[in-house]
Each structure stands twice: as structure tokens, then as C-alpha cells.
Design a protein around this nucleic acid. Structure first.
Lengths: 220, 220, 220, 220
DNA sequence: GATGAATGAGAATTCATTCAT
DNA sequence: CATGAATGAATTCTCATTCAT
């Protein structure tokens, strides 16, 4: 499924020579890994070194950092969408459990690395990105819809809520050597998912009004 | 309470001239603000400029970035502990609600900026940090203890779970212009808190064993 | 006169520390020399080295190449204007000769280096530049006016004609080791000046019409 | 005449395949154009792109920049010599006018681009270059000889004087968008030519002695 | 003690040139 | 032969840190 679905969101490029294509993929993979580990600010020379290519090769493929981030983001979105679709396909009667499975699986795709998506340089409205996001959100929406219908998912939650939250909860800690990062992450996701279950246990601040009320409350 | 309690975690410094002390505080405040906005990687000259002092003055007070981060972290921890203690004092019968109030209030202290705490350069075992953390955790533990006793907070959650989670959920998005960042944040915290309520709705992966089980599940 | 007149076109800067001011001047001087020799494209590190400062010092004073060029240009304009004013003051009855003296003297100021003035990055409409140009053109105009009145300078020549022409004729040859560059230059200027004498020996193509005529002629 | 005379200065190359020969010429033509526009420092990839060939093709034909410059120079010299010979052939009684015609015509060949000729990398003593220069100078010498004999051209001017001067006067201004560049150029040439007419209006500094005298004069 | 200035080390990016298809 | 791809060396520019006033 991976290849097929991936192809869906990819714009047709001018045919690349086989070796160039391989390098291109290596670079994106290396960037994904190293940026997940050390943040989006890593020296691009480091990315190139990890990919096993010269720095200029990286620049040939991705003229600047923003362009590289764009493609890393696409890659993460695609892979995460694959996971969502897979979870959807594997659903076996417990819709909420399918949603849970997807959320925990998303960690493996380092979805926390999606944050660079929002960094200054990247064009969030680029058609490719919109398409990839769309595909992901559509799949997650399906998972959520089924869970909602099963009566296990509270009704006041949008797909955006979920995506941003799991992105934040899985963000790598700077400089972390991850010893038990995973353990924490999965605990947090589990707790967060518990909060998503019906019946709702609190009212969500969604309007400016409720938000302001909440703030008053905090002040004293 | 603020001043008194703050003093508690401060190690005794050699007496500073009044203006030097003021500069010192301005620098930490400026650093806290600018790092919250632009991440921990901001040029220190920028911090100095915001604080209205020369860069060399910053370096006189904080010999390197790690040292500055150390003090920013202390400051955030202290202020957040103030909030926790205040929430504790303001408790009026609903212990879980007091916990909720604290969590939402912590956003105002930009607790998400605590993440630099974990960055490479900072010594996480410095006595001052341990003390500040201790004070904060003690206060939050009190809040949680009361909530647990009231039967509203599930029992399988440690203070670390909560602190790391809210830190992550309130991390600033890079390059964000924050228009409705707050709205999202408070929604997520609300959902997360809902997940913390008793009765527990799922088992948390806390041991290596359950974690592995969870992973198996994700794989297919 | 030099210092006084130079001050005329300088905008008041915030007071610089004495050493900083010295560095600033050294850098401009070095840039003028090295750019005259090797063109405006020289590595800025080279300029810094020649000025005896670190490269970052250069960047502190002149944030980018365009800014440095701007100041080099100002410097050349100022020094050339000094020459023009000096020639004016030294006039002793032969106005055309005074003009000649200025033109040959301008070589010493490397007026050919003015060409960078026209390069892409520089703002030709910056007030400081306009002022410096104005001062120079005013002085040259005076020289030309006197020569015209003496009946030795043909009437159809504007100050711009002269300035651009001598700029071009004194442009350094790329990679030249200049042994007898000076000899050529002064010969060319002499010839060009001869062409400026009255009575006019040809009609100058100044309108589109005459220019087109000239082109036709060239075609066959 | 063009083809024949061009052949004269070309050393016999190993027979090239027709398409290779065409590529070679396209590259030189592209280089001439792009270097005239943007200076001799343009990226060679840009030249290749303009010529519609791959960069490696350029390198196959011209192993390095100096080699390409060499051939560009040859091309300009040849074309300019063509112009000179044509002017010579078209002479119709007014020898000085024929000289004028040639000078203005040389602009069209962008003779100002000859300056790269003198840049470091090029071997000015290469037989091909000497031959091309020779041919050009011989033709110009003929024009000048006739003009001298007609009594209209002053006697103290060598062919080198003229060639270097018109090269300088027609040098493209960096970053110029050429709107009225041509107008200026032709005006300057006209003035310069006027200075070449007999009777001489000044003594030319040709010896070290006269040059020094001139310098003294400039000093005060 | 406070400050502006100086600096070298390092990161991003470009480009001439070589290599593999 | 022609080409696109790869590469390292060079260049611009930034920034943490030190120095001189």
C-alpha cells in the first residue's frame, strides 16, 4: 500500500536518473532522522554526511533549507497517512481501538517532526502539502467518524485537535537521548486518548468566551 | 507569597549592587520572553538588546548560554511553583478543579519553555534546579494527592506524567504567530485532564512489558 | 581643505570610539585600494586582511558588500571633488588648462573605481551619494564653465559626458600589472581633452535621430 | 569576406563532427553574449544553458574558463577585424570618415568585451591571439595610415592608443540596463575621434619624462 | 561594573570541475 | 559524444565569546 498511496500525493517530477533518485530519497530519509533527533536547525552538511553524499548534492536537490523541510514534511505526512489507512483497514469491530492504534503508531513515524512544518520558511499553502495533509486528515477523520458512531468518542473534537495534540505530545525533547522518552510518550497519548472518550467529562474551551472565562479563573 | 517563596530556592549570592541586581533580573526576564517566542537558540545579543543592556553585561552575569538557560529555567520553575501553591491555597472544596486551575494557569508561565531544561548544555542535577523542581513537584503532588483522595483523579498517574505532558502540550510552535495558539492549548489541556479523571479508562503503558505489547499492536 | 570639505558631505554618525573610527577608515581605504586593483568582486575577507582587521569587524561596520561599496564610492567622490576644488582654486588664467589638470589629477584618485557605483547592489539615489555627486559635479561644472567662457571648451558637452568618459578611460584593466597603464591612461585623457576643445570638430550624437543615423552608417 | 578571413586566423583543428562543430560555435556565441552582458565572471553553467548544451559539453570543448575566454576573444577580434576591413573597402575618398565609421561600428561587436583578454588566465602570447590581433591591427593601421596621409589624423597616435581607448570607452557598465548606454558611448567616441584630428591640439605624454612632468603639474 | 568593539570558528551557499550513464 | 549528477573548495555571513575603554 505504501508505494501506491505515496504516489498519490506526489507531483510528477521530470524523470530522474536512477542514482539521482536514490540520492534524493537518501537525503530526505537522513534529514528526517537527523531533524527528529536534533531539531530542524541541524547543519545541512550534517544531513549530507549522514546521507552519504556531498553537501552540494544536497543543494542540487533542495536549493535551500525550506525546500528540504518541505519534502521532509511531505514524507512524514505520507507515511503517517499510510499508518492511518492501515489502521482503518485493520479495524476489527472496535473503532475506538483502531483510533488508539493509529495514534500510538504515529509515534513511530515521528510525527512530532511535523512541527517544522510550521516554521517560518515553509509554505504551508503549497499544493503538495495541502494534498498530503488532506489525505492524512481524511483518513483520520474516517477513524474518528467510526469511533464517534460507535459512541466511544466524544463529539466535540475535531481532527485538528487530535493532530496538533499528538504532534505536540510526541515532539522530541531537545538534546534528549531518549532513554525512556517512548515510555512517557505512550503514557501521555494513552491519557490523552482517555480524555477523548465519551461521555465528555468537561466542556472544552472552543470559543473566545469560554477561553476568557478560563483565564479569569486562572488569575485567581 | 511570591517574593518569599522565590527567595526560598535562591542560593545566597554575593551581595550585588542594586543596579547590577536589576540588570540581572532584567536579563533573565528578557531571556524568558524571547526564548519563549523564538526558541532557546536566539542570539544572546538579541537577549541583551531586549534587556536593554550591553552584551558584555549579559556575559558578566551569565558566563555562557547554559548558565543563562539554567537561570531562566529556575525562574520558570519558581513562578510555576508559585502558581501551584496559589492554586493549593485557593482550593475551595473541589480538589480536581484546583488541579485543573493550576494546569491552565501554568500556560501563562510559559511552562513550555521548560524544555530547554533538557537541552544538552544544562546540568539537570544542579542543586538549585533540583531544589526548584522539588518545590514545584511537591506542590503539584499536593494538588494531585487531594484530587486523588477526592476520588476524581485516577491513581496510576505520577507527578512526572503530568508535568512533562503539560510542558509538551504548551510548547510554542516554531515561527507561530499565536493567533489561536492559546485556544488550542487550553483545549488540549482540558482533554488531557479529562483523561486523568477517575475511573481510569485504559491501562497505561508504564512497564517495558506493556510498552512492548503496545508496539506489537502498532506494527500490525 | 580636504578635511573640511570632506566633512561637508558626511552625515553625522553616532560618535564612534576612536579605535572603531580608525578601523572604519582603514577598511574603506583597504577596500578602495583592493577593489581598484582587482575589481569590485574581491572576497571581503581579503579586504579585511588588508585592513588588518578580522572579517567580522568589517561586517560590523558594513553589513553587506553593497554597503561597503556605497562608502567606497562616497570616499572616491569626496576625494575627487577635493581635487576639482583644488584645481579651481589653483586656476591662474588658463581655464582650459585648469580643467586638464583636474582630469589628469582624477586618475590619482582612481576615479575608474567609480564604476562599482553603478553595480546592482548600490542605491544610486541614496542622499549621501547624491550629495557627494552634487558637490563633485558642481565643482567640475565650474571648471567647465570657466573654460567655456574662455572660448576654449566646445559648448555641446555636459558635465556627465566628461565624468563618464574619464571614468571609463581610467578603469583598471582586469588582472593588469599596470606597468605602463598610467602612460596609456594619460595619453587617452589628453586625446579626449583635445576633442573637447573649441571649435567643435564634429557633431555629437545626442538625440535618438543622430544616433540612428550613425548606426545606419555603421551597417554599411 | 567574413568566412574567408575568419578562416585565416583559425588553426587547423582535427575535423569535428558537424553537430560538435555547431555546439562549439554556439558556446562561443553564447559566451560572447553573456559575458558582454554580465562580465567575464559569469558561471559557466549559465553559458552552457544559454548555448543549449549540457555543462559537460562546454568542458569537453573548452577545458577551462581561460580556454573559453581565449576563443571568445578570438571571435571578437575576428569580427572586429572584419569590420575594419569592411570599412577599408568601403572608403570613398574621406579616409578619416572611414576611420570614424569603423570606430563606431566596433561598438556593435562589443569590443569592450576584449578586456577579459587581459585577465589573468589568458595567454596573451598565444599564436592564435597574436595572429588575430595582428590582422586587426594591420587593418586599423591601414585605416589610420590613409587618414594620416589625408592630413586629417594627427601623427602622434599609434594603433594601440586607439584600440585600447575604444575598448575602454565601450566597456559595459556593471549592472547596467543599457537604456542610454549607447548614446553615451557614441558621444564619447565622437569626442575622442575629434581629439585625434590634425592639427594636434596638445602634446601627448608618451615618454616617462613627459608623464612625470604631467604628474608634477597635477600635484599642484 | 558596564559597555561597544573585535574576533575566530562555523554554517549556508555557490561554482568550477570531474564522473558515471 | 553528450549529458545530468556529484563533489570539494571557496565565499559570504553569523554568532558566541573575549577585549579594551
Amino acid at each position: 500500500m505504501n508505494t501506491a498511496s505515496t504516489a498519490t500525493t506526489k507531483t510528477s517530477q521530470p524523470r530522474l536518473r536512477a542514482d539521482a533518485q536514490r540520492n534524493r530519497e537518501r537525503i530526505v530519509a537522513a534529514a528526517r532522522e537527523v531533524m527528529v533527533e536534533h531539531g530542524a536547525e541541524v547543519p545541512l552538511d550534517e544531513v549530507a554526511r549522514r546521507a552519504g553524499v556531498g553537501n552540494a548534492t544536497l543543494y542540487r536537490h533542495f536549493p535551500d533549507r525550506a525546500d528540504l523541510l518541505h519534502h521532509v514534511t511531505l514524507s512524514v505526512l505520507d507515511r503517517t497517512a499510510d499508518r492511518a489507512e492501515r489502521a482503518l483497514a485493520a479495524e476489527d469491530g472496535d473503532a475506538f481501538q483502531a483510533l488508539r492504534a493509529f495514534v500510538h503508531a504515529a509515534v513511530e513515524e515521528r510525527i512530532g517532526a511535523l512541527c517544522p512544518l510550521l516554521s517560518d520558511g515553509v509554505d504551508k499553502d503549497h499544493p503538495d502539502l495541502l494534498a498530503a495533509r488532506d489525505r492524512l486528515e481524511r483518513a483520520v477523520e474516517s477513524l474518528m467518524g467510526a469511533a464517534r458512531e460507535s459512541g466511544r468518542l466524544r463529539a466535540d473534537i475535531a481532527v485538528g485537535d487530535l493532530m496538533v495534540a499528538i504532534t505536540q505530545l510526541t515532539r522530541p525533547l531537545p538534546g534528549n537521548r531518549c532513554t525512556d522518552f517512548d515510555r512517557f510518550v505512550h503514557r501521555h497519548l494513552q491519557l490523552f486518548l482517555d480524555g477523548l472518550m465519551a461521555p465528555a467529562r468537561s466542556e472544552l474551551p472552543g470559543s473566545a468566551a469560554t477561553l476568557d472565562g478560563l483565564r479569569q479563573q486562572c488569575r485567581r
